[in-house]
Structure formats: C-alpha cells, structure tokens
Design a protein around this nucleic acid. Structure first.
Lengths: 334, 334
DNA sequence: TTGAAAGCGGTACCAA
DNA sequence: TTGGTACCGCTTTCAA
C-alpha cells in the first residue's frame, strides 16, 4: 500500500517507532539522543526498532525546537574560477571553526541564476555571503532583511556590509616597479564583463600618472585564460611598442603569459606581466607570476566574521577592518 | 531590554507581526507568500510591519509543514585540490538542476574532521555525497540510514552506493603508448596516504606485465605538487635509468614536471610523464600533461543522480552505470 | 524510569 | 477577504 500525498512513502516518524516498541515518543527521543533516564534494555529495543523501520529524525522538526545550528549561504559566480575556489575554501574553513553549515550556490556567471538563488535562499539560511552582481535594491528586495555580506563589491555598498579589496597601494607599487625597470609603454588588460572600467583600472590610471606617464592603452578581457590570451593579442597588435602589462586578475595574466609565448615574446625580457589576486595557480606557471597579491583566506574569514556580527547584532566591522590589502609580490614575470 | 535565553534577542515570529498589524497570523502568512485572498491594503500593512519588525520566517517551521526542499551534504577532503574542485562544481551544477541545496564540508584531509562532519550532518541534510576515507562500518554508524553515495571508493563498497572510476583500460593504453615509444624503464609515483598500493597501482602493474615488462619501480608521493616533486627526485636518484613515469594523479604529475625541469630533464624527450584525472590544470602547464582522463562533470552528476535514486527509492544505478571511464588523452608530456 | 502535555513557528483547510 | 483550528515532527518541562 502506498501512503499519502504523492511524494513517495510517508516518512517514518518518532511516533511510528514509539508504537512499534510500545513506549511513548519521549522515550524514543531519549534513546536516540543519548539522554540518561532510560533503561538500557529499553534503549536498545528502541534503537533496534528505529534502525529496523529506517527512522530518521526530521531536521526541520528538530531545528524548530532546539534553535541552534546556523547556516550561511555562499553565492559565487563560478567555483572553477580559482579565485572563487580560494575564497570558498577560506569561507568554509572559517565557518567550520564556528560550527556553521555552508550552503554553496554556483550561479555559473548567469544573472538569472543569481536572482533565482537569492529568491530561494532566504528560506534556507540565516545569512548570505557572496560575490553578487545584481544592483543593491534588487538584492534587497530578494533577501528581505536577511543579513548579507558582499565580497569585493566595487561600487560602494550602501545598504549591505561588504569586504573590500584595497589594492591601490599595491597597484601603485606594481607600476612604479615597471617604470623603474625602464618600461614606458605599459598596457592594461581590464575585464570586460561590466560596462564601466574597474576600480583596478582606476588605480592603474592613477599610478600611471603618478609616475608621469600618459594613461596606458587598455584592452578588455573576458575573465578566463582564453580571454587573457585574446586580449593580449589584440593589445599587442594595435600597440606593438607595449613592453609591460598589468592585468585585472591572475587568470587574465596567465592567459597573457600563454599568448606571449605563442607570439614569441619572452617574459619578462620582451614583455613584463603583473597580475592581481595572488592565486596559488600563479606560482605554478612559467615563469611564475608577479602579482598584486591579496590573502584570500583573510578575505573569506572576514566575510564570515562579518556575517557573524550581523547575526549577533554585535556591530559590523569598521570601514578599515572590512578590507584586505593587496600588495605587490614580485616573481618571474616582471 | 534583552530577552529570553542568552542566545540574543528573541526571534520575531509571525504572531508578533500579526499582533502589530491587528490581524491573524494566517493573514500575515498570505501576505508574505503572495497568496491571493487578501486585500491589497491589508497586505501592504502586513509587509510594512514585517519589514519594520525585521521579521523573517523560520526555515525550520516552514520546512516542517511544506515538505519540499531537499538538501544534500557534499563531503570532500580539500576543496583546493583541483580534482575536488571540479567534482564539487559538477555536483553543484547537477544539484542545481534538481533544485537541491548543497551543504559543502571540507574536512581538510583530517579524519577527525570527517568524523565530526558525519556526526553532525545527519541532522542537516537528506543525503550525503562524498569522498570518504573512514571505514564503512564507521560511516554506517555515524550516518544511521542516511542515503550515502561514495565517490571513487577504491575498496569495493559493500553497504553504500558508490561511483567508481574505471581506468583499467586507460592505464593499459598509457603504458602501451610508452612502451611503443621505446620506453622500457617505467616508474610510477603512487600516492602515499593509504597503507596499501592504490588500485591505479594495480592497473599499472597489470599493464606493465601485459606489455612484457617487469613491474616498474615505484615511489610514493604526497597528494600535492611538492609531493610529486619530491617523489620524482627520489625515484630518479635511485633509478636514473627510468625514462617515463605514470603518476597516481595529475597533481603529482605536475610536481614531477617541475622536478624534471629542475633536474634538467627535458619532458618528454628525457622523461615522459603521464598523469591521471584529466584536470583542466594539466592543460595549463608546460608541456601540457598527457593523462588518463575522466569526466569529472559526469562523476559529480552521477553521484547526485545516485543520491536522487536513493532518496526516491527508485533503484540504484547498476554496477556498470555507476562508473566513469578514464581514457588516455595524449598531449605534450608523453 | 516513563509518560502526558505544551510548545517551537509556520501553513492548510475549513468556516465565517 | 478574513480568522479559527488542526497539525507538521520533535524536544522540553513536569507528573506519575
């Protein structure tokens, strides 16, 4: 006989177990939760019956009554992008330290998926941490008061907490380094996704003029290795005199490295490359990548920390605390 | 004034909102869930009050009554290990397609963390998918009837569903390829974590003898790039005549590539290297890695599929279906 | 040691 | 359009 409402067999409840053993449900509860106040033999009979019947307590019922367990949603555009892999790993680690559960959502770089995720997430988690691209008012509408921590939101976040990446000094140091090495024609591979130039681009421009150079030539790259390859090829085709490039991130930089090799340009002799992020991956390529590096573990940890503060209403991080610094880390490519 | 039981302010319930507006809780529920049967003005008043009071519905209470939403736990040893990154991304994608939520646990390669995770997971998810290292009876004890799908469990899983990696033919093809290229002294870098040789090692031995060669020399490597570097150095120090190596996985192979470069051995001329897994990362290194490749997306998808079958009791995948084939993919390194 | 009853915070079904 | 009531499945008092 099938039971109930279409969604497969009715679930086995604590009452079923109690009935089978001929005890009350409290007794079952005691047995299952290793409370004392129960005779060993009774406990064993309950446990046996529970196993027999395939009983498993409802997490909702349990969660409803003992209000512990907090879980946060982690929303990222693409887990296979090493930057987000590192951030996710860091967030998982920080959450584990607090005994939190992390529900991960990979939106696959699609806005509709981000929207869909936010729509459904409110009923699943106590707070959201994420790299979100939707406008703030839309996020607000979808999350309805759920604590939200934005990661690396370039536009100043007005209504939400955010962990910023402060790479201004790092980028300045990077350009200064290139200039000191004699480079005069420095290009940038910015990322193409957004309509306006990135903040990193702004930092680049400022650093260039601080070094007395005209603003460099810029090519836009998809956030992928192929994107970096294509962008560098375009840049060099139009401006063959460029001898150094700064890139929006390490992924693009690695693409640039590959393109340079293909074009027969030796790095760093013929072309110097400096990335941004400081990914582990950058240490594996040849030559190892010079980059404006940030501590992704700290980034993830801060985001989780801030979520915790919002949850306990213990006051958000200060503007300065809510940022990770990115600093120049020289290696083989520049 | 602080309220109640130490765990911060008492939560705002639907009754609080109802009271504030002067309606019943059902009316509040209707307003919040966009049901019809409510006057627009009433709805607005409710929504305003809810926002005002900072009301957010309890996911437990809601989940308790409408028994939809399934969530699975994904347990992996190390998200930063690219193999698991790919598997996780694949699992997330497959889960998203079904509207499932995925709670991710990174045990950091520590058994105690794996145990702790399993202990707590039963009350959080409807099923577990994971790369688990604990013995089956212990997993059984900790998960107590929760559907469990093991990924790439080398020992034949008796009590649990598992998705296997079938690389026997692929490894055979790899060794055959090396032999055809003239290699006679072929080594293997197996992984060091477990006490017994891996199945991949077994395949290697079988392939070697099928090619009429004595079983190759083996060095054991930690599952990391450094591990691969060290292991290759040891192997070549003891057996300088080795001209080709097969490795437990791509990570170790990439380490081997780096060590070879450092030792002044040209790849593939002086040393041929073939990995296992077919990671995206392998295409980025120089030379690009030849490898016995499997489809990690399929691996993740199958695991989720199997979890779904267990959940709906619709019969597990057959032994053949529950495996992904790994096949030789030649590239620059061999 | 065991059981009865009262919630936990919602939604669904009915009657008003 | 609204409200009353039962109930989802479990744990926590409090009596027995």
């Amino acid at each position: 006989m099938m039971a109930s409402s279409g969604t497969g067999p009715r679930r086995v409840t604590i009452d079923d177990v109690a009935r089978a053993v001929g005890v009350s449900r409290q007794t079952v509860s005691r047995a299952l939760n290793d409370k004392g106040e129960i005779e060993a033999s009774t406990k064993q009979r309950v446990l046996d019956a529970a196993l027999e019947l395939g009983y498993r307590p409802s997490r909702f019922a349990r969660g409803l009554v003992r209000q512990d367990t907090t879980s946060v949603g982690l929303v990222i555009p693409d887990l296979l992008n090493p930057f987000f892999t590192e951030v996710a790993a860091a967030a998982l680690e920080a959450a584990r330290a607090r005994g939190w559960h992390v529900v991960v959502y990979d939106t696959g770089d699609r806005v509709e998926e981000e929207r869909g995720t936010l729509e459904v997430i409110a009923s699943q988690v106590d707070a959201v941490v994420g790299y979100l691209t939707l406008p703030e008012d839309e996020i607000d509408k979808l999350t309805r008061g759920l604590p939200v921590v934005l990661i690396d939101r370039e536009q100043r976040a007005e209504r939400f907490s955010a962990i910023r990446i402060d790479g201004e000094a790092g980028v300045h140091a990077a350009i200064r380094h290139l200039v000191d090495a004699g480079h005069r024609h420095i290009g940038m591979l910015d990322h193409a996704a957004r309509s306006e130039p990135s903040i990193r681009h702004t930092w680049f421009d400022a650093a260039m003029s601080a070094c007395g150079l005209d603003s460099g030539t810029v090519s836009r790259a998809d956030q992928s290795i192929e994107g970096g390859e294509n962008a560098l090829e375009r840049l060099l085709a139009e401006h063959p005199d460029v001898t150094a490039v700064f890139t929006f991130n390490d992924i693009i930089a690695i693409g640039a490295l590959r393109a340079a090799r293909r074009l027969g340009r030796q790095v760093p002799q013929d072309l110097a490359v400096i990335g941004f992020d400081g990914l582990r991956l950058g240490t594996l390529v040849e030559p190892p990548l010079s980059t404006v590096a940030l501590d992704t573990r700290e980034l993830g940890a801060l985001a989780v920390e801030e979520a915790g503060r919002l949850l306990t209403r213990s006051g958000p991080l200060s503007h300065d605390e809510a940022a990770v610094k990115a600093e120049l880390r020289l290696s083989g490519s520049a």
